[in-house]
Amino acid sequence: MKAWKVEDWCTPREMTLTDLPVPEPGQGQALVRVHAAALNFFDVLMISGKYQVKPPLPFTPGCEMAGEVVAAGPGSVFRPGDRVCGQPGWGAFGEYVLVENDRTDIVPDGVPMHDAAVMPVVYPTAHVALQRRGNLQPGEWVLVTAGAGGVGIAAIQLAKAWGARVIGLAGGEAKCAVCREQGADLALDYTQDGWVDLIRTHTNGHGIDVIVDPVGGEVYDQALKVLAWEGRAVIIGFAGGTIQKIAANRLLLKNASAVGAVWGGYLARDPQRARAVVADCFDLYAQGKIRPAIMRTYGLHEVPDALEALSRRDSWGKLVIDMKAA
């Protein structure tokens, strides 16, 4: 099979596209012919050795995919012909990948593979950030930093589906327009001064009930200034490069809280809850309340191009690798 290979921690351009043996499924595993794989920012971190998960070298990157089961090992809940999507630890940037029971779900009939490939990571991440950790209630105000990113768009769509009022932050007017197109009631450019005051004005002084932040750094620090009474500031990452430093006095004075939300933790610790979250996301998809925003698809040979676009923040929404593309 054709697959990308990381021999040592490297940049996207230093990976190699090579021929590898098709793996054999073991206990509780199934072999999937990948139809589409989605990219995430942590893919860039993983191949450079900067992610908290460090696969044994050499490895094939890619942590989100959809495809068709072609073989099942002993104890697998899947059978050949099943359409599945999931979050393997790595390996999705190849023509075949091994998946495990608790990290994989059946794709409902009628869901295109490109859309299915986008579902396993960003939508469940936004789901648990808003509902489980953020305790979002209808009518509350939600602030989504990096609102034009994959998780950001998922959070905007889910928050609107659950009856919230949403403000998206993004870098530049083009990405602010994406936030509005995806349902945000207001989109503000965080590179411009004054967005904190604009939030106060737009919410009539109420502030933000739930902050969903994958950015960290100065953006998070400024967002805490508009956290409402008993607000919840949910940390899901630090793509800006600086880990959040919480001004605890802001939490104390607002009777507020700062909490973390790591989707992968549910896969390992509470697979039954994780499966319910994915099922709810597909149910909302079937109702037309959420819809993956795919900016562009690439061929397998273009994975480095896609990863570089992601790392430069040239993209919005999701980037998808189409295994059938020339």
Rank of each mutant, 00 (worst) to 15 (best):
L130R: 05
L98A: 11
G240L: 15
A274F: 01
D280F: 10
G183L: 06
P138F: 04
M65H: 00
L307R: 15
W141D: 04
I321N: 07
D193P: 06
V278W: 05
A38C: 07
K254V: 01
A247V: 07
A239K: 09
V99F: 11
G67W: 07
H206L: 06
D109M: 08
E218A: 14
K175L: 09
G264N: 05
D115H: 14
N249F: 12
V121F: 06
A261E: 13
A170K: 06
V77K: 15
L227D: 07
V234S: 02
V144T: 07
A92D: 13
M113D: 08
K5E: 15
A72G: 10
D221H: 05
T297R: 14
D115W: 11
D189R: 02
A184R: 02
P292W: 05
A174V: 07
D105E: 15
G62N: 00
A187S: 06
G260N: 05
M15W: 03
G67V: 10
R250H: 11
N255E: 08
I246V: 15
G205T: 09
T11C: 00
P61S: 04
W195T: 05
G94E: 09
G231T: 04
T11Q: 11
G172H: 06
I156N: 01
E68D: 14
G163T: 12
F59A: 02
V32F: 04
G194L: 04
G149S: 09
D322T: 03
D280W: 12
G149L: 00
D283V: 09
W4A: 12
V210E: 08
F238C: 15
I153Q: 01
S76G: 02
V178Y: 01
W316I: 09
